[in-house]
Design a protein around this nucleic acid. Structure first.
Lengths: 198, 198, 198, 198
DNA sequence: TATGAATGAGGTTTCATTCAT
DNA sequence: TATGAATGAAACCTCATTCAT
C-alpha cells in the first residue's frame, strides 16, 4: 500500500508523527508542508524523498490507523467467549484506543475530503471491512438470541461508531471520567440497547 | 451577532445557501470564494459587502443551524408528556431534521476548526446550551425513576449526538431505510439503552 | 480651482478636516474613503457629491494650505521694516503656523506623489511662487548689504524650508520648547547664517 | 535583524536595488510587488523567499542606509581635528552622500509610515543614535567655546537634517550647482549659524 | 540521501467608484 | 441632496512542488 522506501533512520516515522499532530490540531489545509518538516527537524527535500506528496502523508496516516484498528478488532472478535462478551470487549477497546490516539481520529473525521477520489475509495473500502467484522459480532448475537433482532445490525454499528468518533469533539484529557470508565459506559450503552426485550 | 446589513433582495440568503452546499461537498478550504459567488450569481465585492470574511460566511451558517435546532428542541422539550416520551420525540426529530439538512451538519463536523478561536467559542457555547437542554430531559427521566441512573446524563447526550452527527458520513438518500425509520431506530436505541434494568 | 458646489451645511469642511487628520496619521493610501466619510459622519455618496474623487480631496487640502500660507507671507513681506526684520518675522511666523497645522504639512511631504501629474504641477507652481516671494526677501537683504552675498538665495530658502518641513518629523506637542521658542531659534539660525562676515 | 537567508546569486540585492528605485519614484504604496519582481527579473515566490513581506523589503532598505550613514559619520566624528572642522566635514559628507543616494532618502521621508509600529520604532532608534552622534559634535564645539551656546544642540541637528532631507525635493541632477558645491554651502550655513557672536 | 532556492498558480481581501432610488 | 448595494480590478501573500547540486 505504501510507496515509501525502507529506511532505518526513522525520518519517515517522525514525519508521520508530526504530521498527525499538526493535521489534528490545525487541519490538513491549514498545515503547510513547511510546518511539518520543521516540526520533524528535516527539510522539504527529505520529505519529498519519503512521501510522494502531502496527500500521501495523509493517506499513510489513514493506512496506519486502519491497520492497527483492524488488527485489534480481529483479536477481540476471534475469541471463544459468547458474542455479547466479545462485542463488549471490542467496543470498550476501541473506545480506549481511540482516546489514546485521538489525533488520528480527529484527522479521520476532518480531512477525508482532502484525499483524492481513488484514495478515498481505498480508505472507505478498508473501513467497510472493519465495520463488517464488527457487524458480524452483532449479527452473531442476534442469531444466538442474545440480542434483539428488530434493529438492523449495520445501523447499530454506525450508531455506535458515530459515538466513538465524536470522542474527538468532547473528550478532555483531564475530564471527570477516565478513558476506561468512558469505555465501560459506552460498551454498556451499546449492550443495553441491544438487550432482548422480555 | 452578525454585521450583515439588512436587505430585501436575498443576495445574502443565496450566498449562504450556495456556500452551505459547496462547503459540505468540497470542504471549506477546498471551496474558493470565487466558486461561492459564481454559484450565487454575484460578484466577490457583493459577498464582502454582506459578510466580513469567508469565515463569517461559515459562522453565519452555523448560527442559522443552531438557532433552528434550538427552537425545535425547545418545542419538544416543553411538552406535557412524561420525560421518556418527550425525549423520544426530540431524538427522532433531530435525526429527521439532520438528514433533511445534511449539508449543514457535514459542515459542522468538518469545518469547525476553520473558525477563529473567538467564533469557535461562540459556537461551542451555543451548542452547549443545546446539549444542556437535551441533557435535562435525560436527568428528568432519571429523577422520575424512568431511566437508569448509573450512567452520566452528559455522557449519554454525547453518545447520542455522536451517532446523529455521524449520519453525514453514512446516510445515503436512496438507502434501504427512510429518514423516519432511521429516526425511529435511533430513538429506540437511545431509550432502550436508558431502560431501568429490572 | 475647486469644483466643489457651494454649500451651507459645512459637510465639505468636515470632510476636509477629517481627511486631513487621517491622511496625516495614516497616509493617503492607508486611509480609505470609507474611513473618511465615517469620521465626518456622512456617507460615501455625499462625499462624491462634494468632491470628484479621493485625489480631489487631497488636492483641496493642498489648495487651502497654500492659499493660507501665501497670504500670511505676503502680509509679512509687504511691511515697511528693513528686510532682515521682515525676513525674521516671516520665518518665525511660518514655523509657528506650521506647528499649528502640522497635519497639513505632514501630508505635504508624504503624499505629493499621489496627485496626478497635472495637479502636482499646479501645486508645485504655487509653491514656487511662495518660495520666490521668500527668496526676494533674502535677495533684498543681500542687495542692501545686510546679508552675505556669497551664498545663493534660493539655496538658502530651500535650506530653511527643509528645516521647517522637518518639524513634522520631530516636533512633539509636549516637548521642551514652545512653538514660539522654536520659531525664535529657527529664525535666529537663519538670520545668523546670513550674517555678513566681518 | 533580518530573516533573509544568505545567498550568493545576488537575487536579494537586485530586489533591494529595484525596490529602492521604484519606491522612490512612485511611492511605496503605488508600487506593486509585481512591479518590483519584474524589474528584478525574478518571480514573486522568489521575493517572498528572501523577504517576509513587502514591508520587510522597505525595512531592509532602511537598515542598509542607516548602517552606511552611521559608519561614515563615525569616521568623520572620530578624527583629531577641532570640533568645528570635524562637524563641517561630516556635514558636507552627509550632503554629498545623500545626493548620491537620493532615492534612499526620498523613501525615508515618504514611506516611513508604511512600516509596522515595531519596525518604525527600530528605525527611529537607529536614527536617534545617528543624530546623537552628530549632536555630540555640536555640543563639543559649544563646550570648547567655538560655537554659541544659546541654541539647543538637538534643535540645531534637527534644523540641519531637515535641510538635508529636503534635498530629495529640490535637487536636480543637472542643476546649477554640483553636489560638492551644495555640500559646501550647506556646511557653511550650518557653521556660520553656530558662530559665536562677538 | 538530502538541500533549499525558485516557481507559478491560486487564494482572500480591499477599495475607489458608480448608479438606481 | 443623499443613500448604500454592487462592481471589478488589483493588491499581497501562501504554498505544494521541482530540480540543480
Amino acid at each position: 500500500m505504501s510507496r515509501r522506501p525502507a529506511n532505518a533512520s526513522g525520518v519517515d516515522d517522525r514525519l508521520l508523527a508530526e504530521a498527525t499532530r499538526l493535521f489534528a490540531r490545525q487541519g490538513f489545509d491549514r498545515t503547510s508542508v513547511q510546518e511539518v518538516v520543521e516540526a520533524a527537524g528535516v527539510t522539504k527535500g527529505a520529505m519529498y524523498h519519503y512521501f510522494g506528496s502531502k496527500d500521501d502523508l495523509l493517506h499513510e496516516i489513514y493506512g496506519r490507523v486502519l491497520r492497527d484498528q483492524t488488527a485489534r478488532l480481529e483479536k477481540f472478535a476471534a475469541g471463544e467467549a459468547p458474542a455479547p462478551q466479545r462485542l463488549r470487549d471490542a467496543a470498550a477497546d476501541v473506545v480506549v484506543t481511540t482516546i489514546e490516539n485521538l489525533d488520528d481520529f480527529k484527522i479521520f473525521t476532518q480531512s477525508m475530503h482532502h484525499l483524492s477520489a481513488a484514495k478515498q475509495r481505498a480508505v472507505r473500502a478498508e473501513r467497510r471491512k472493519y465495520h463488517e467484522r464488527f457487524r458480524s459480532l452483532v449479527e452473531e448475537g442476534q442469531r444466538d438470541g442474545d440480542f434483539r433482532a428488530d434493529v438492523p445490525a449495520d445501523l447499530v454499528v454506525d450508531y455506535f461508531f458515530g459515538s466513538v468518533h465524536h470522542l474527538g469533539v468532547w473528550y478532555r484529557r483531564n475530564g471527570r471520567l477516565t478513558p476506561a470508565q468512558i469505555a465501560d459506559h459506552y460498551a454498556d450503552l451499546l449492550l443495553t440497547s441491544l438487550k432482548e426485550i422480555p
